[in-house]
């Protein structure tokens, strides 16, 4: 098992920095998700760790060794690409064995490892097929198999599930996480899907515009988002972030002292109907079965509330909304930083 340390890496193209002074560590045998909207630098960070791209500044260590200048093949990593990058003219078996053949592993051992990996991922019956004869999910498994068969201590994943349908994605999430735990791999998993990051990762590194917004466990990032952006990005529906003034009339609301103009973040699921609460005009209501999402306007700002079960709310109705004091997240209007 190997850990990964990224120390102050940047990647610039001329003036623009895709990755700007990013540092983090990944403990051996854990899964860290690099999460963020498209263009936030998460994929570039992964490519820098893989060695497919060279950083403009900073160092990368894998298992303590500085690999910054090494070619990808000598970093002891495996990688799964978003498009799978399967060789279209080679059979499934040949695809999986490609790296082992390049590295001149003994044929007997190759066969042995192929069988093990194929059994593990349920590919045994498909070994003679070409990638074009496989479904998306099967191709995904082949890509995984190719990464696993290398028995590298570190596995990098670049949005591996984004080309699959929703149902399959849920299945593969569990499967990848189970494999990662079972094989004790250190894994960096790039995704723009916060639910993927929440369900799979030991830690989430949330990125925005080339910088790290927050590096925390899923529970922390949900419970104590470091910025308004983090609050809005993690959780569905996203956190309501409104100017503090819009909620000024609510009794028991205690904004942190200071000269700052504040934003108030309230998770939709923390909102409850409260006769003493603030009046909010209903804009729309969506009934989802287990709960109802009610979109309202509160003090002029859009505000979504989530109630368990079915709530009768018609457009134009006025609801009184409240929340516990522990549900309030305060952010600075200027810096977006958490204040409480």
């Amino acid at each position: 098992m190997k850990d990964i340390a990224v120390e102050g890496i940047s990647r610039r193209w001329g003036e623009a920095a895709a990755v700007d002074d990013v540092s983090f560590t990944v403990a051996a045998g854990t899964l860290v998700a690099l999460l963020g909207p498209s263009g936030c630098g998460k994929s570039t960070t992964l490519r820098l760790i893989a060695g497919l791209d060279q950083p403009s500044a900073g160092r990368i260590r894998i298992g303590g060794a500085d690999v910054t200048g090494l070619p990808p093949a000598r970093r002891g990593i495996a990688m799964v690409f978003q498009s799978y990058a399967l060789f279209p003219h080679l059979s499934v078996a040949e695809n999986i064995l490609f790296g082992l053949k390049v590295r001149r592993v003994e044929p007997a051992e190759r066969a042995d490892r192929l069988r093990r990996v194929a059994d593990m991922l349920g590919l045994a019956a498909l070994l003679d097929r070409k990638p074009s004869q496989l479904s998306g999910g099967q191709q995904q498994r082949v890509a995984l198999a190719r990464a696993i068969v290398a028995e590298a201590a570190v596995c990098l994943m670049d949005e591996p599930l984004s080309n699959l349908d929703a149902q399959l994605r849920l299945e593969m999430r569990r499967e990848i996480r189970a494999l990662q735990t079972r094989l004790g791999m250190t894994m960096i998993y790039v995704t723009h899907d916060q639910s993927e990051a929440m369900t799979m990762a030991d830690r989430i590194i949330l990125m925005r515009a080339g910088r790290i917004e927050q590096n925390a466990t899923p529970a922390e990032i949900y419970g104590r988002p470091a910025t308004g952006f983090a609050g809005r990005f993690v959780g569905t529906p996203p956190m309501n972030v409104i100017p503090a003034a819009a909620a000024a009339g609510l009794p028991g609301l205690q904004p942190p002292a200071g000269p700052h103009t504040l934003l108030l973040g309230i998770r939709p699921e923390a909102v409850r109907l409260d006769p003493a609460g603030l009046p909010a005009e209903v804009v729309a209501a969506e009934y989802l079965g287990a709960d109802t999402l009610v979109e309202t306007r509160l003090g002029g700002s859009p505000f979504v509330a989530r109630f368990a079960g079915r709530v009768e709310a018609r457009t134009g109705d006025v609801l009184r909304l409240g929340w516990g004091p522990e549900a309030a997240h305060w952010f600075d209007t200027g810096t977006d930083r958490r204040m409480n």
């Binding site: 893989a50 497919l52 070619p71 990808p72 093949a73 000598r74 990593i77 495996a78 990688m79 690409f81 498009s83 990058a85 060789f87 490609f98 790296g99 390049v102 590295r103 290398a150």
Partner: peptide, 11 residues
Amino acid sequence: VLAEAASLEGA
């Protein structure tokens, strides 16, 4: 990406 995959494998 095929070239990248191959280079990761050490080809």
